[in-house]
């Protein structure tokens, strides 16, 4: 009698847990589809191939940044510097390619390395000096914004001497092979970054420790794991990904715009949150984050097509964030 009841209980609990994870993605995905359905009914321009590609293109930068932010948020931290770090990395690429005239691969590596380096600085401030992530990355956000302006002399750096630079985000490898699918390279990069990050999070020791840090850092430390080291690595990886975002945006604008960047971190965090990653750490998926980023892009694009004023687009995005998190809370409660 006892064992039967127990077994029943356990299977019910188990299936509840399983469906909880599935639910989360399903809900976010369903909202995305619903949004798209609404917009395609409201405007025939919405479902045009050009527009859809535009949406993907617009998602590339925010998506990559959101993936970077996902790593940090799963550890229970927060990174406010992803936006200005992206710009800083773009400026570094500009310095290497335009100021110093170095070959393109060097510039690309420099941008990613700069991002990783800055990430490791944030990580060290947080792990070793015990500065709360919010404060440490707020400081880094302003510091990097300032540095980007100083290095560039507050002027945009153009990549006119590196003609292939626009290839990074604008042209389409896939389109060259499959002409009916002209997906821009920026979107391809987002896809690759997302898949790689998802693999890292689910299949590697780094991923395991990322979740463990967010779940119970002290228990991990008392398991004999060097938590400081792994935390720094997480911020370093996140910073490197911001460098990739910097390359995409610089390529798209064919310039490093030093004044840009601030505000991107909030869009990235919004995408992460809409995607169901818990701000208290320990839980989250890259797929969710990508869906979250797509929801934001679709919303912005759709509202623009319907000629809703930009101010109102921001209002709607705010409402969506609150609704998304509230839906998540309701679901957990039931």
């Amino acid at each position: 009698m006892t064992t039967i009841v127990e077994k029943e209980t356990q299977t019910v609990i188990r299936s509840a847990v399983l469906s909880q994870g599935a639910w989360q993605k399903l809900l976010a995905f369903a909202s995305l589809i619903a949004l798209m359905a609404v917009f395609s009914i409201a405007s025939e321009n919405f479902l045009q191939a050009d527009n859809l590609i535009g949406i993907l293109q617009a998602t590339a930068v925010n998506g990559v940044l959101a993936v970077a932010a996902t790593f940090v948020i799963i550890t229970g931290g927060i990174d406010l510097s992803v936006g200005t770090l992206m710009t800083f990395c773009a400026v570094i690429a500009g310095v290497f390619l335009t100021y110093w005239g170095l070959p393109m691969p060097v510039g690309i590596l420099a941008a990613i390395a700069a991002g990783a380096l800055c990430g490791s600085v944030s990580g060290t401030l947080i792990a070793k000096m015990k500065i709360p992530p919010f404060i440490a990355t707020l400081g880094m956000m302003m510091l990097l914004k300032g540095l980007a302006l100083v290095i560039s002399g507050t002027r945009p750096i153009y990549f006119n001497d590196t003609p292939n630079f626009s290839m990074i985000s604008q042209e389409s490898f896939i389109g060259a092979i499959l002409p009916f699918l002209p997906i821009p390279n920026g979107v391809l990069i987002l896809f690759v970054v997302a898949v790689a990050s998802s693999l890292v999070l689910t299949r590697t020791a780094l991923g395991r420790y990322t979740f463990a840090l967010g779940s119970n850092e002290e228990a991990v430390r008392l398991s004999g794991v060097n938590t400081d080291f792994w935390k720094i690595i997480v911020y370093t990886v996140s910073g490197g990904i911001c460098g990739i975002a910097g390359l995409i945006i610089a390529s798209r604008l064919n310039s490093a715009q030093p004044a840009l960047g601030q505000g991107y971190e909030l869009d990235a965090i919004a995408a992460v949150v809409i995607g169901g990653t818990s701000l208290s750490g320990g839980r989250g998926t890259i797929l969710g984050t990508i869906i979250g980023a797509l929801i934001i892009s679709v919303l912005t694009n759709g509202l623009r097509i319907l000629s809703v004023a930009q101010e109102w687009q921001t209002v709607v995005t705010g409402v969506i964030i609150i609704l998304a998190v509230y839906a998540d809370i309701l679901r957990r409660r039931s």
Partner: peptide
């Protein structure tokens, strides 16, 4: 507090 990451699974 100090022994388990309770949000993670048994194997982890």
């Amino acid at each position: 507090r100090f022994g388990l990451a309770t949000g993670m699974d048994v194997a982890a």
